[in-house]
Design a protein around this nucleic acid. Structure first.
Length: 346
DNA sequence: AAACACACCAACCGCTGCCAC
DNA sequence: GGTGGCAGCGGTTGGTGTGTT
């Protein structure tokens, strides 16, 4: 055997770069069905041409149902600053105290926003101190007292926080898990143990202050999670390239989830191949005929579900960024869905 | 309108620690 | 105890969007 560590995967055999919607769907569906006990084996089992590492990262940072997207709230930013004081660049530990936030996202926010902001505050504070030497009437020492210097990222409420004292407010925390922060200094190592069970608490509002944390590293197989309890809007509640938030308003979410769980994974390779090949350029009609055929194979002749099926298909359309399909195409789809057409037919 | 600079963030890389054998 | 394989972590990169000149 060769020396050194073998690469995690054959870089020439795996796809890299941004994930396509079809890949996302495939990963989501696979994990829903089988969990992710073995990331290394997962891509192969799921039929993804990706490194297991990449799959894991994609799931953790983007596709998990409990991942929270969007800008950090003031509360979260304050919490992040405080946690960073305590933990330093231990992003995963910080993430465990910020429910729904991933270490990667936290790291990005810190490096792109907060670090600069704090640096500018430090600079301004030093300026204040220097000026205070010459002008004793200025305020007492505080590196966070300057409100006027933070012209960037306006709207974030830490500008006027006092740094010498706790940044955090006394009020109950809404967006992040601060219940343990008061003992953060002596609990650095037990941070992850404080987390609740790996059950997605999205029955509550997304900003609920549960002790649940995004302890990614301890993510249990999704098989153990009651997916019916996972809100569908959480599942795709990110500002990604195929945001479906609007679509969800018109579709029964639990039904969608049911349908999602019914996607034939291994059984219909053509379905996935089609998704892979289509991307965003191929005819929507073809796409939906194939999809419909796929759905038909699993849903059978349950006419009572016809309407729900259409909704589900439309949802998939939007999910995959193939939402340009008009009503007439839906008619076509429902009329001759089983009739095969060669790609590029339209 | 075009070119350039900057900001943002998803994804990658490589290292570390843990665990099974 | 040593070794190999794995997941996880933190730093870095590169693509893309946005603002400015």
């Amino acid at each position: 055997m060769g020396k050194g560590r073998a690469p995690c995967c054959d870089k020439t055999q795996v796809k890299r770069g941004p994930w396509s919607p079809a890949e996302d769907m495939r990963l989501i569906t696979f994990i829903q069905k089988h969990g992710h006990d073995n990331w290394r084996a997962l891509p192969k089992q799921a039929g993804l041409l990706r490194c297991g590492k990449s799959c894991r990262l994609r799931w953790i940072n983007y596709l998990r149902p409990d991942v929270k997207r969007g800008n950090f709230t003031e509360e979260e930013e304050r919490t992040l600053i405080k946690l960073h004081e305590a933990f330093g660049n231990k992003w995963s530990k910080i993430a465990s105290h910020l429910p729904g936030r991933t270490d990667n996202e936290i790291k990005n926010v810190w490096n792109t926003h907060l670090k600069k902001r704090l640096a500018s505050k430090e600079a301004s504070a030093q300026g204040d101190e220097l000026s205070s030497i010459t002008s004793p009437s200025s305020s007492s020492s505080s590196s966070f007292t300057s409100c006027g210097n933070a012209k960037q990222n306006t709207g974030v409420g830490i500008e006027c926080q006092s740094e010498t004292g706790p940044i955090l407010e006394e009020k109950p925390h809404e967006g992040c898990d601060l219940t343990h922060l008061d003992k953060v200094e002596d609990s650095k190592e037990e941070a992850t143990n404080q987390l609740g069970p790996a059950k997605y608490p999205r029955e509550q509002t997304s900003s609920s202050g549960s002790s649940y944390g995004s302890n990614i590293s301890n993510t249990s197989p999704v098989d153990h999670v009651s997916w019916e309890e996972v809100r569908m809007d959480s599942l795709f509640d990110y500002g990604g390239p195929y945001d479906i938030s609007n679509t969800l308003e018109e579709v029964n979410k639990p039904d969608i989830l049911d349908k999602l769980l019914e996607i034939p994974l291994e059984a219909d390779v053509d379905f996935w191949n089609m998704l892979d090949n289509l991307e965003f350029t191929v005819s929507n009609e073809i796409q939906n005929r194939e999809t419909k055929a796929c759905q038909s194979s699993t849903l059978g002749e349950e006419n009572s579900k016809e309407v729900e099926d259409k909704k589900w298909l439309r949802y998939l359309e939007n999910e995959l960024g193939l939402d340009a399909m008009g009503e007439e195409n839906w008619e076509i789809l429902t009329n001759d869905a089983t009739e095969p057409h060669a790609p590029g037919h339209l």
